[in-house]
Amino acid sequence: METKTVHKWLWVWDFDKEEDWLNEMAQEGWALESVGFCTYTFRRCEPGEYIIRLEMRSKDQDYEDFLRETGAELIGRVFLWIYCRRKAEYGPFDLFSDIDSKIAHLQRICRVLWIAGLANLLIGLANSLNPGFWPSWINLLCATLLMYGLGRIQGKKEALEKERRLHE
């Protein structure tokens, strides 16, 4: 079966764009088959055969079994992100069907970015006071990016919270 591998860098705050891109690929007849750090491997499929979804969630065997039970296949896991797909013939496929669970998902992403950002900031500061082998600017750059990402996800979360208030 024909496969192709694409290397692509995507920012964590653009995870919805990443999902859109993977679904466009599936529409064009390329189903995501496996996933690694910045590496996506696709296999030829019928155009529109699969719907792809991704989600940040810490490792939870129960949840993975639950997903399989609903007809979804787990494609892979990169850090805390899980990638899954389901055949489109089973009907629309989403991981979140209400605004509260979408907000909770963004909240989980915020928490991880916040912890990782803070850790990089502290390590960067400690290294700049006590210069060693590892240059501190790398950690400070990471901290800046993670905090930027946090702001972007926070913005998405606030937009949903505003929407929830309107519909209550």
Partner: peptide, 11 residues
């Protein structure tokens, strides 16, 4: 009313 897997699992 359609329940998605992640939403249902949390509920």
């Amino acid at each position: 009313v359609r329940l998605a897997a992640g939403t249902l699992y949390g509920a």
